[in-house]
Design a protein around this nucleic acid. Structure first.
Length: 508
DNA sequence: CTCGGAACGC
DNA sequence: GCGTTCCGAG
């Protein structure tokens, strides 16, 4: 151990220093495809050379016009005194780099990773934080600290094995993603064993981004101006979230899992947060690149124009199609920044479960969209300045928060989604939808219209055969989804009855 | 090995 | 707020 303590780490040159103001950084990144490296040298004493806070700057988003990013996106690397790198982020960083697979790697279930060499991980962490006396005991204490925050939990019975709560991680990293209101993410939460599937409907996707900065281009994430109604017509405005773009092919499994883990669907992570993707978590959501090339891909012309269409993904039908967006296009004509179609690597859900997605008809979606617009208009009449520029769940109006049902006094975060307080891998299967009837209602929606049906754990389902799950499905006639109670306008009696029945089913 | 309390620093 | 350090307990 002690010999490793001062072992020379991969030496790194920060080819261009990141300690700039965000503006300068933006400008810089716009014109400079500098390759960044991360210095893991252990610092010593007063002459701390650490660049510990250089972790993965939010490069991809910065240069895109019209996008405002939350403060957190800049803090770690932009200003001295800003909060430092967080351990979980560091862990993710290690996890995404193949060179560290020997000491820490994804393994097992969703988001699960194992620290193969605790001492080494601790050493690296200590190096990063300029804490030469760091050890696994201390590091693990910090990890345990995350239990309460529900960012991590321990995989019981497995040594050095922890598991990420993706939803939480995503929320922490992308507070503008309103996962708390998203049926997609509510259903996605594998962390605590949710067995439901996400609502992949355009509306669900929209719900992830209810408060994107209104740049005057319209607030909907789905551009319906040129598309006919229908699933194929709802086009996600990916140009709104360039930080979710990848512009490159994505791994569907971690390198270490390319072999035997057939049980893991190769696509189960929403919004490109597949932990098995290189750079899955946020800031350098980019394809695996040669060592030392952490960021450039987003700035390069997309070499795989058809990468999305190749993805076996239920979203693919929602995204600008290759035909629509790329035919005859070499860039610049589809309205996306930089002239390149922004690619969103959205691993799809285990296929058969997606059937419910089709439940939500486009016309209904459009109608609900219009309703929301009306609500917004009422809530913020022109001139009141009530605006839609807010970012983050904290600015949600009460009526937006799942009808006010979310309230969790125990929550340690306004980004809380579900109660994971007893989330262990031992009993992962029964907590998610206890939180409130609205959750349950939402989950009901996606259950193929069968009230009270219970989905098996995802892990128990056969892997999806079709690489294009939705394409193998027959559309179901649209059926109005139920809503969070207090969000709903007065329901007609039969709808109320349905809600009641649903609740009964849930409570039983 | 794991857990969490407590004091403490930044 | 986010660890870091220490430590006793299971």
């Amino acid at each position: 151990m002690s010999t490793m303590l001062h072992q020379t780490q991969p030496q790194v040159a920060i080819q261009d220093h990141i300690h700039q103001t965000p503006d300068r950084y933006q400008t810089h990144m716009k014109h400079n495809l500098a390759i960044f490296h991360i210095d893991l040298r252990c610092c010593g004493g007063m002459d701390c050379n650490c660049v510990s806070d250089l972790l993965i700057p939010p490069v991809p988003a910065l240069w895109t016009p019209g996008i405002a990013f939350p403060d957190w996106a800049y803090k770690p690397e932009s200003s001295p005194g800003s909060r430092q790198i967080q351990l979980w982020h560091f862990i993710l960083e290690l996890l995404q780099k193949e060179e560290y697979n020997g000491i820490i790697a994804w393994q097992g279930e969703y988001g699960e990773f194992v620290i193969k060499d605790p001492d080494e991980v601790a050493r690296l962490w200590g190096a990063r934080k300029c804490k030469p006396h760091m050890n696994y005991d201390k590091l693990s204490r910090a990890l345990r600290y995350y239990y309460n925050k529900r960012i991590l939990h321990k995989t019981k019975g497995k040594r050095f094995t922890y598991k990420f709560n993706f939803s939480k991680v995503v929320l922490v990293n992308y507070p503008i993603l309103d996962m708390a209101n998203s049926p997609f993410f509510l259903a996605q939460n594998h962390f605590n064993g949710s067995t439901s599937t996400p609502d992949c409907s355009p509306e669900a996707i929209q719900s992830l981004f209810p408060r994107l900065p209104d740049s005057g281009r319209g607030t909907s994430l789905f551009d319906r101006t040129t598309a006919a109604p229908g699933p194929e017509g709802d086009k996600l405005r990916l140009d709104s979230f360039p930080f979710l773009s990848t512009g490159a092919p994505c791994y569907t499994k971690p390198p270490s899992l390319l072999g035997p883990y057939a049980r893991n669907p190769p696509f189960d992570y929403p919004w490109g947060f597949n932990p098995y993707l290189p750079g899955a978590f946020s800031l350098n959501n980019c394809p695996k690149l040669p060592p030392g090339s952490l960021y450039p891909s987003q700035f390069y012309p997309n070499p795989l124009q058809s990468s999305l269409s190749q993805l076996p993904h239920p979203f693919s039908s929602l995204l600008p199609t290759a035909e629509a967006g790329e035919r005859g296009t070499t860039g610049g004509t589809n309205g996306t920044a930089g002239g390149q179609p922004i690619r969103l690597c959205l691993p799809p859900y285990p296929g058969s479960l997606s059937l419910g997605r089709m439940d939500i008809g486009a016309s209904l979606l459009a109608e609900r969209e219009r309703e929301r617009e009306r609500e917004r208009a009422e809530a913020n009449p022109p001139g009141t300045g009530g605006g839609s520029l807010g970012l983050g769940a904290g600015l949600q109006s009460p009526s937006e928060r799942r009808g006010g049902l979310k309230q969790d006094p125990e929550s340690d975060s306004d980004l809380e989604i579900t109660d994971l307080s007893d989330c262990s891998s031992d009993n992962d299967n029964d907590h998610v939808f206890r939180k409130g009837p609205s959750l349950a209602s939402r989950s009901q929606i996606v259950l193929d219209g069968k009230k009270g049906s219970v989905l098996p754990p995802v892990s128990s389902l056969p892997p999806t055969v079709s690489p294009h799950p939705l394409k193998s499905l027959k559309p179901v006639s649209p059926r109005p989804p139920s809503r969070p109670l207090s969000l709903s306008p007065p329901l007609p009696p039969h709808e109320k009855h349905r809600e009641t029945e649903t609740l009964k089913m849930i409570h039983s």
